[in-house]
Write a protein that binds this DNA or RNA. Sequence first.
DNA 1: CTCTTGTGCGGGAACGTTCCCGCATCAATA
DNA 2: TATTGATGCGGGAACGTTCCCGCACAAGAG
Lengths: 385, 385
Amino acid sequence: MDGGAGDWQHQRMTETPPRRDHGVPAAVPRVRLVDVAREAGLSKTTVSAALNGTGRLSPAVRERAREVARRLGYRPNPTARLLRAGHARLIGYAVGEYPTGPGSYMDSPYFTQLTSAIATTALRHGYALVLLPTGSSPDEWADLPLDAAIVADPLADDPLVEGFIAARIPLSSDRSVEGRSGTHWVDVDAEAAVREVLDHLRAQGARRIAVVAPDTPTSFYTAALDAYRRWCAEQGATPLVTLSTRPGNGPAVEAVERSLTTPDRPDALFMLTEANPPLVLDAARRLGLSVPADLLLVCASEDTSAAHADPPVTTLSLQPVSVAEKGVELLVAALESGSLEPTGALVRTRLEIRTSSERGGEPAGGAALRRRGRQEAEYTSAPPT
Amino acid sequence: MDGGAGDWQHQRMTETPPRRDHGVPAAVPRVRLVDVAREAGLSKTTVSAALNGTGRLSPAVRERAREVARRLGYRPNPTARLLRAGHARLIGYAVGEYPTGPGSYMDSPYFTQLTSAIATTALRHGYALVLLPTGSSPDEWADLPLDAAIVADPLADDPLVEGFIAARIPLSSDRSVEGRSGTHWVDVDAEAAVREVLDHLRAQGARRIAVVAPDTPTSFYTAALDAYRRWCAEQGATPLVTLSTRPGNGPAVEAVERSLTTPDRPDALFMLTEANPPLVLDAARRLGLSVPADLLLVCASEDTSAAHADPPVTTLSLQPVSVAEKGVELLVAALESGSLEPTGALVRTRLEIRTSSERGGEPAGGAALRRRGRQEAEYTSAPPT
DNA sequence: CTCTTGTGCGGGAACGTTCCCGCATCAATA
DNA sequence: TATTGATGCGGGAACGTTCCCGCACAAGAG
């Protein structure tokens, strides 16, 4: 288990290390600070100061130390530095809920952008990101010198979250950790987001707004569905909810089809489940519905294909980049100040209104087909509301 | 810069550490092995052995040590363990070429799956993955205790690659590192992949096969274009290449439109640029082309929406999961054996043939429309070849 | 010429572990 | 009763760095 490296642990007890080069792997020992010092005829203290630009050293000595270090190809041992420094500038990152592998939620543009933005922001603050297995037990990361951790979309009472808190590792996550010592939360304002979408659809004339949402206990989705039901109650409308049970485009499209084939068909669809917008349009088209003429469509999605779809699809962006930046910033601020004070922030979503949710908008394929002088009655003559 | 932690460095020189709790951050010193030992009336050696399950200890002592450790909330310092162990079980991961941020190549399903699979595979082998900034200089990762590194799609003479090699950090990348000491390469067989696609399209009756490829110096794309040109030369066909200059769906779709509006229109399209397949279908439809009747389509893409598009789109998968697994396995094998011997592996791509590239296949919207008894002549009566 | 002040460099402790030994103690054997 | 061997535990070195301090020596002030 310790294979190889452990075997020559105690070989360097003498002053002149026995650099044996028999043995096949020829594991050449790294050149250390003392090696440079001996070669330069200086002490390790002096060499250390020379390389780090600290201490009181004559220019001549400083340059000599540097030259020798360069010549020997010296690279300081990061682990030893970390042990002295007391921190590793490493942040663990885990996604709470979802199993990995192709076809999982992890593949969605939301998580891609979130992960990417967290990494970028952390690095800008001098921290590197370590990818942790989802749903891992503490012993999987106990050997890692983590200064802090970020858990995206944790389960309720997530063991990961509990593990980090128990280990007194500062944590950034969603509102479920609110108020606990050493934790920080960032969340999107689901209530405001949902109201903005629903109000927009209603303003465009929608009367029966259906929602397709994933069947997960993630806080955003439960909060969003709650907000939707409240809004419906206020408006005196009956909630039309269809749940997509598994991740991926297939189940999402299937849920869309179920939602749109109810006896009393909706005239607007709010896709909370993240799906590829063009596929949602395809589904509507297959059912003989023209968007936006017969059906207004808003997708909660970060997929850039929404803007290029035909017609362009209105999207609700959950602003993963903002969430990432805020989460990292709260964490780094607490880390630098050494404070255990819990903090939090709410991020506003962004509704990008495009043709798919505008009553006066172009129908699917309309622009191109009309331009080429083709008949498009098949699409615009779908059953009216 | 060292802020906070460095200030109480030399405070613990006495046997009884002065746990001062004045000062606002109240940075409570971590409980160390010696603290547990003193509390239990044992030596640190004994406690260490007790917790690690090593050494010769009476059950009573072992249990006592464990109990005290539990009671005090002792957690071993990972950095100190690493310093002893000589390795951190950390692998750095960087994407060579592409700038980050939304709209970059990094957002493509290929990289999502590659990254995810590398992380998963590494973790299965006991290594954690550290996300590195793209195009970073050595001093960005010099402080990280990396045992190895993986660079996906490096540039020619990538500074990142050169940095890792100079630092003698074992590296896994593509064929550009082939043969250099401590390096390992994994690549897809671009030649075989392209020939398989082209032969398939030809067998389906295609005579003018166009290619849309990204304008990047990534080895796969240059190799693929070379293979395409060779194949064309063999077949006596003229190569029809359109380059997409920038990443993202927009430029890709635009390239498709350019490719399909040439005076002598192609009867098959091989999308090497990774784009959302439904958007490519949209583009064809806007130009009045029915897939597969007027245009056979194959997309090099990992996007799951291809299978659910209308019609389902034939895809060439670059097998990022296989690439990831092979790359990590070569690296881990070298790490465990301590060998510097360069190794490499070639991964076969996978052609998933669907309706979009089959001459007898269903046209766009066909299946669903026919099912609902609707007229579909508009699409099947498009200009024949 | 002595006292101070400053400069240049090195000794050695400390970060918190793990692990090689050595030293007791005790049972079993000669 | 002496000798061996096993068992149980602790001392202390080592991993490779950084940094506090002390010491020697030179220069300027009184």
